[in-house]
Nucleic acid binder design. Structure first.
Lengths: 164, 164
DNA sequence: TTGCTCCTCACGTCACGTGAGGTGGC
DNA sequence: TTGCTCCTCACGTCACGTGAGGTGGC
C-alpha cells in the first residue's frame, strides 16, 4: 500500500514505541487485538515495522482519546476492510466520526466546567491563607471568616467535609 | 457536621445512585475504599445515607473527571482528616488542585485539537460521497479524485489505510 | 403475598503494568 | 563477551459490570 521499503528502513518495536509515545506492552496488545501488524520478523523473532506504522499508532491514540475502545477501533477497521465499495465504507466512518465529534464537544464543555470549579475552589481556599493556625478542620465547614460563607463553598471544597 | 437529620430523611442507596448519576456498584466500591460512609444501617442491613452524601459523590465524580484515581482521593481525604491545623490542610489541597488545573487545561487543549482533527476528517470524507461505487478501498489511499490529494489526508483518515 | 429494593460474595472486563526467564544483534 | 533490545508467558491493577442466591420493607 505504501510501496516497498528497504529492509534496513524497517523499525524495531522500541523505536516505534518511542516515536509514537506508547509502551512496548501497548503495541503488543494492539497486535493481539488485530490493530497493528509488523511487516516482517527478523530471524530471531524481532518485530520489524514499516514507517507508516507510526501513523497507525497515532491514529489509535487519537481515537482512544476520543473515547473509542480498542475493540471499537478493531470493528471500525474490520468494517472498512470488509466493505467492497469504498464510498459505502467512507459513509460508515463518517457516521461514527460525527457521533464522536458531538461527544468530544460535550466532554470539552464538561472539562470547561471543571476548570471553572477548580478556579473557584482555589479562589475560596486563598482566603484560608490568612486564617490562624489555631482553627480546627471541623470549623472550616461552617467558616464565616475572611468573607467566607458556608453556603457559598465551591463544590470541590464542600465535598471535603461531608461524610467525615 | 451537617446537623442531625430525621431518620425519615435518610436515603437508601438507590436514591443516592439516581441523584448522583452513579451505579449502586460504584457506591459500594467507594465505601470499600473509604470514600463514602452511610450514616446508618436499617435493621435489615440497608445502607441509609445523609442527604449531604450527594455532594460527596458529586465531589468524587468531578475529581475523577479531572483525572484523580479513587486511591488518590482517598489519600487526599486522609491527609485532610489527619492534619490538625486547618490552614495547613487547605494549603495542601490548594497545591493539588493547582496542579490538576494545569492538567485539565492541557487536556482541554488536546480535545480541542481532536475536535479539529475530526472536523477535518469529516470535511475530507464529504468528498467521498460523490465518488462512484465502483472504486475499491485500496484506491482511496491514493485518491486524487474530487480535489483529494493523498498527501493531504487528515490523520484520522490516513490511519485507516496503513498497516492493512 | 407480590414486587421492588437491597444484601454479600465473586468472577469478568478493559488497557495496560510489571516482573520472570530466556535469547537476538551489533 | 558485554549490553542493550527484544521475545513469550502470566499474574496484577483499576473502576467498575454482571450475575448468583438470598432477604428487607411497604
Amino acid at each position: 500500500v505504501h510501496g516497498d521499503v528497504a529492509i534496513g528502513k524497517l523499525m524495531r518495536i522500541g523505536e516505534l514505541a518511542r516515536s509514537s509515545g506508547k509502551t512496548v506492552r501497548a503495541l503488543h496488545l494492539y497486535e493481539e487485538l488485530g490493530l497493528l501488524h509488523p511487516e516482517h520478523r527478523s530471524r530471531g523473532g524481532f518485530r520489524l515495522y514499516h514507517p507508516s506504522s507510526v501513523a497507525r499508532v497515532l491514529w489509535i491514540s487519537k481515537l482512544q482519546d476520543a473515547g473509542f475502545s480498542l475493540n471499537q477501533l478493531k470493528d471500525l477497521l474490520r468494517d472498512v476492510e470488509i466493505e467492497r465499495a469504498a464510498p459505502e465504507a467512507m459513509r460508515r466512518v463518517r457516521a461514527v466520526f460525527e457521533e464522536k465529534l458531538a461527544e468530544t464537544r460535550a466532554q470539552i464543555a464538561r472539562l470547561g466546567k471543571l476548570e471553572t470549579d477548580l478556579v473557584d475552589s482555589l479562589g475560596y481556599l486563598e482566603g484560608c491563607r490568612g486564617c490562624e493556625p489555631v482553627h480546627r478542620l471541623d470549623e472550616c465547614s461552617v467558616c464565616g471568616i475572611n468573607g467566607h460563607a458556608p453556603t457559598e463553598q465551591p463544590i470541590l471544597v464542600a465535598g471535603l467535609h461531608s461524610n467525615s
